[in-house]
């Protein structure tokens, strides 16, 4: 098991290294000088020289990268030229907001996905199965932003029962927080619920047909305990794989969710930075978002190792 985890960790670090190269080169692949691009043609030579040396742009490129990574690890991501805001500070403010929306999306989707999957598998062929399966298919096919806009139109503007703009921190007012994330979470988890539902359903159907389940039945185990101990445990392995693959989609989707619902998280910040060509923020955002993804994937992999006996045995 130790080998397994250390190998996964090693691969994650290599992945992060490549991503950091990508994020770093984003700014340097660009034609023109980023400082002049932001300050405009009218900037004084003194200003330009000051900011260039501030960002180490006058250093050789390899050194720039090393300095950038070192500063990043120390938590210093520089100052955005555009708004003169400290990137690390803003990040520290916005990351919790993103997590406060993203983590509920994960929990809600996994809970409902598995629940619906089990229901549709057990009640296979009944109307519940058909309704839920059709909804899952629609959920997989419909684009996130469209669904988000529909939710706003219906629950926000027509029925006027839920807020659809902004965000209230849970520490401020927990009830308002729940209200403010209701629509974003609903929009964000739809596709994920659909994918997990479908996967769980087909896995459960497969597992339920296997011999050991029949044996368990014959031994007089209750139907509910068969479902939730024997069957689900075995159906869970492929589901976790799917979850690992979906994490980057959730993270990517949160950008759209934040934009549509005006949530001051990292996603909307990134979009603003991109439209403003605020390279320092783009760099930092890409790296931070990727770190979140890479480590969630690592977590899933490790979880996978604990659950799947084949891996556990193979890697000892």
């Amino acid at each position: 098991m130790f080998y397994y985890i250390s190998k996964k960790l090693f691969v994650s670090l290599i992945t992060l290294f490549i991503i950091s190269l990508f994020a770093f080169s984003l700014m340097h692949l660009l034609p023109g000088d980023p400082v002049i691009n932001v300050l405009g043609e009218g900037a004084t030579d003194e200003d330009i020289a000051y900011w260039r040396s501030y960002y180490n742009l006058d250093q050789p490129i390899l050194k720039q990268y090393v300095l950038w990574v070192r500063n990043f690890i120390k938590g210093d991501m520089g100052v955005s030229l555009m708004y003169e805001e400290d990137v690390s500070e803003t990040l520290a403010r916005r990351l919790p907001v993103t997590l406060a929306v993203g983590i509920p999306i994960c929990i809600v989707s996994i809970f409902f996905g598995i629940l619906f999957g089990v229901i549709t598998a057990v009640k296979r062929g009944t109307w519940i199965d058909q309704v839920l399966t059709t909804m899952a298919n629609i959920g997989i096919a419909s684009p996130l932003f469209w669904f988000a806009i529909m939710l706003i139109l219906i629950f926000g503007m027509q029925l006027n029962i839920l807020p659809f703009r902004g965000f209230v921190a849970p520490s401020e007012n927990f009830v308002e927080y729940l209200k403010s994330i209701a629509l974003p979470v609903a929009a964000g988890s739809l596709g994920f619920v659909a994918v997990i539902t479908r996967q769980t359903r087909s896995n459960m159907l497969e597992v339920l047909n296997q011999d050991y389940i029949r044996t368990a039945r014959a031994n007089g185990l209750s139907e509910v305990s068969i479902l939730f101990t024997e069957a689900l445990k075995n159906a869970l392995i492929p589901i976790i794989t799917i979850m690992g693959m979906q994490i980057r989609i959730i993270v990517g989707g949160s950008i759209i969710i934040e934009q549509v619902f005006s949530i001051p998280g990292i996603g909307s910040w990134l979009i603003r930075a991109i439209t403003n060509r605020d390279y320092w923020i783009v760099q930092a955002c890409v790296l931070v978002i990727s770190i979140v993804t890479v480590f969630s994937n690592l977590l899933v992999d490790i979880l996978y190792g604990f659950i799947d006996p084949r891996i556990r045995k193979k890697w000892r």
């Binding site: 691969v11 290599i14 992945t15 992060l16 490549i18 991503i19 990508f22 984003l26 700014m27 692949l29 660009l30 980057r248 989609i249 993270v251 990517g252 989707g253 950008i255 759209i256 990134l270 979009i271 991109i274 439209t275 060509r277 783009v282 955002c285 890409v286 978002i289 990727s290 993804t293 890479v294 994937n297």
Partner: peptide
């Protein structure tokens, strides 16, 4: 390895930032 690293960057983040650059 490169394509794995690429897959770890969420699709929208990648596309948006490359398009912006």
């Amino acid at each position: 390895r490169l394509s794995d690293a690429h897959l770890s960057i969420p699709g929208h983040v990648f596309t948006l930032s490359v398009a912006a650059v």
